Computed example of a mutant assay.
Amino acid sequence: MPRLDEHFWSCSCTTRGRHKNNLRAGTTRLAEKVGDMLTPSVSSASLVLVGQGAINTETTDRNKNSNTKSNNGRAPSNSWHHHLVQRSVVLFAVGVFLALVLNLLQIQRNVTLFPEEVIATIFSSAWWVPPCCGTAAAVVGLLYPCIDSHLGEPHKFKREWASVMRCIAVFVGINHASAKLDFANNVQLSLTLAALSLGLWWTFDRSRSGLGLGITIAFLATLITQFLVYNGVYQYTSPDFLYIRSWLPCIFFSGGVTVGNIGRQLAMGIPEKPHSD
């Protein structure tokens, strides 16, 4: 009997152990299958989240870049127009000042004569002379650096304010010589002033654009002066070249070169003109 009980006890223990092992193995396999089933879904969900994050980041970067480009496009445009207005005002003021000073010298030496009824402003000059000269100075001063940029030949010869001031002094001296120097005839005076004007260009400019613009300005200004004198707006004493003095184109040439150098100096360091896309 004891042996039979021991036999049954050992058999029951063995069966229970096997049953437990089978349950553990089945649980492990079930967990592995559940894990295999859940892994793709978790991976796909994480990929979707990562993709959405990347799309949001890319969209944000695009918005920032577009805002930055728009702001950068506006800033140079506003800055360029601001500098253009400043240069125009400065050049206009320079033209008005030079017109008042130089025209006063011509009137005092009886080179230029205005009708008495139009002389009613400062320095005993016609009221329209300073505004016209100021406007012409603004146009010429803005035109010189614009032509240099268009031709692709930036002017680099003596680009400093000291050189510009010396150029102004020489121009005033040439104008003073036209009223003060006495020659045997106007031809000698005209040749002398022509040499001085070319010397001014060679000393302070030496550019083909400066020479071409100076000659063009002298030609157009002489035509306008001829028209004004012909219509009796004012007159010159001892005219020897179609109602005017033969040395007047030399004054216009040297004045154009001088104002052009001022305009070039003012244009240094300004932002470039924005290009439309």
Rank of each mutant, 00 (worst) to 15 (best):
N185H: 14
I217K: 00
R208V: 12
Q226M: 09
L228G: 03
G212P: 04
G212Q: 10
N186I: 08
G232F: 09
S209L: 02
T203H: 15
S238W: 07
Y234W: 15
A221D: 09
Q226E: 09
S246Y: 07
L191W: 08
L198W: 15
Q235F: 07
Y243I: 08
S209K: 04
G199D: 08
L196T: 07
S197V: 01
L211D: 02
G214I: 07
A221Y: 12
F219Q: 05
C250F: 04
L191I: 10
L198M: 15
N186T: 14
S197M: 03
I215Y: 00
L228D: 07
F252E: 04
I217D: 01
L198N: 03
F219S: 14
Y234C: 04
T222N: 07
G212F: 12
N185A: 05
Y243D: 11
F204D: 01
G232M: 10
W201L: 10
V233E: 08
V229N: 03
C250R: 00
Y236G: 02
F241Y: 12
T216F: 15
L211V: 08
L248Q: 12
S209R: 05
L191F: 10
S197C: 00
S246W: 06
S197G: 06
Y230W: 12
L211Q: 03
G232P: 09
W247A: 01
G232D: 09
L189Y: 05
R208W: 15
A218W: 03
L223A: 12
N186G: 14
A218I: 06
Q235T: 14
I251N: 06
S190F: 07
L198V: 15
G232Q: 10
A195K: 05
S246Q: 10
F204A: 04
L228Q: 14
A218C: 07
L193D: 01
N185T: 13
T237G: 06
S207T: 14
P239W: 04
L193Q: 01
G232N: 10
I244E: 03
C250K: 01
F204Q: 02
I251F: 04
S207Y: 05
V187E: 13
N185E: 15
I215W: 00
S238M: 13
S238I: 10
Y236K: 02
R206M: 04
L193C: 01
G199I: 06
Y230S: 09
P249Y: 04
T225A: 07
L213Y: 04
L196Y: 11
S190A: 14
T216Y: 05
F204L: 05
Y243P: 01
I215C: 13
R208A: 13
L220G: 06
N186E: 14
T192E: 06
Q235Y: 10
V233W: 08
N231L: 08
R206D: 11
C250S: 14
P239G: 06
Y230K: 11
V229I: 08
V233K: 09
N231Q: 09
L220Q: 08
W247F: 13
R245V: 10
G214C: 07
D240R: 08
